[in-house]
Computed example of a mutant assay.
Amino acid sequence: MPYEPPTHTVERSLRATSGARIVAGVDEVGRGAWAGPVTVCAAVTGLRRPPEGLTDSKLISPRRRAALAPLLEAWVTAFGLGHASPGEIDELGMTAALRLAAVRALEELPVRPDAVILDGKHDYLGDPWTVRTVIKGDQSCIAVAAASVIAKVRRDTMMAGLGAEADRYADFAFDANAGYPSPVHRAALERWGPTPHHRLSWSYLDALPRWQHLKKVRFSAEAAALESGGQLGFDF
């Protein structure tokens, strides 16, 4: 399907209205997964023209993403990656875990950005950062699109590596599903139960009577709502 390429419109607007000189685009991956971290990338691009074909990582084939990511890493002015582990997600809830991962990503940048473009409509970053939320920013904003591709490829590579750690983990096919729900992933959970890489407060455990005793109590109604909204049950 044809799509409009992302632009620097939001970056230019932030420069004009707030005087921001360094603007970082921020995007996350792994929010709806059963296993693995939530990963956030912060990318600073300036106002240069990006490599051809850049858009939201979800609109790019895996092969194209894998080829584009190293080009983007070399092209951006700077980028930082931050992760929140499954244990941190269980302990803090997704919103706080996202903020933790985003702060870690931003603090990896060599210079603190004057403003941040955050993909989506919710500002999970908050003070003291100057944030502009943009719905579908990963399609419309160059810096956010770059962050989305880098984050996706880095996390997918990490998850594939987890799947190769041991014979037991190979059954989960993390190299194919990156920790997200799939029939193969469900079958492995039914047989083996959750690994140390799984989120134990997630609702997939409700459908696993053999392993329900491992489930951690949701820390708040907010965490439960995020689970329900993230298609984390066995809805195939």
Rank of each mutant, 00 (worst) to 15 (best):
A160P: 03
S140Y: 00
T133M: 03
K216G: 09
N177H: 04
A105V: 12
A151M: 04
I117H: 15
P209Q: 08
A102F: 09
H197K: 10
L106N: 11
T95S: 08
A147K: 01
A176W: 15
G93L: 09
R186P: 00
P86S: 02
K152E: 07
L189G: 05
R191H: 07
P183S: 12
F172N: 10
C141R: 06
D90E: 08
A115R: 10
T195G: 02
V153Q: 05
L162N: 08
V111L: 14
W129Q: 07
W211E: 07
L98D: 14
P110R: 15
A78M: 14
L189A: 12
Y204V: 14
T95A: 03
A147F: 02
P113A: 11
I150L: 02
V116Y: 11
A188V: 05
G137M: 03
R154F: 03
E165K: 02
P209Y: 13
W202A: 09
H213D: 02
F174R: 00
W129E: 09
P196D: 01
P113Q: 06
P128I: 03
A173D: 12
P183A: 12
L208S: 13
T157N: 11
F79S: 05
P86I: 00
S140W: 00
W202C: 06
K136D: 11
G161I: 13
R218Y: 10
H185E: 07
S140N: 05
A101R: 02
A176N: 00
V116G: 07
Y204E: 04
A146Y: 10
V116F: 14
L109V: 08
P113L: 04
V153Y: 02
S140P: 09
R155I: 10
Y124C: 07
E88M: 11
G93K: 00
A78K: 04
P194H: 07
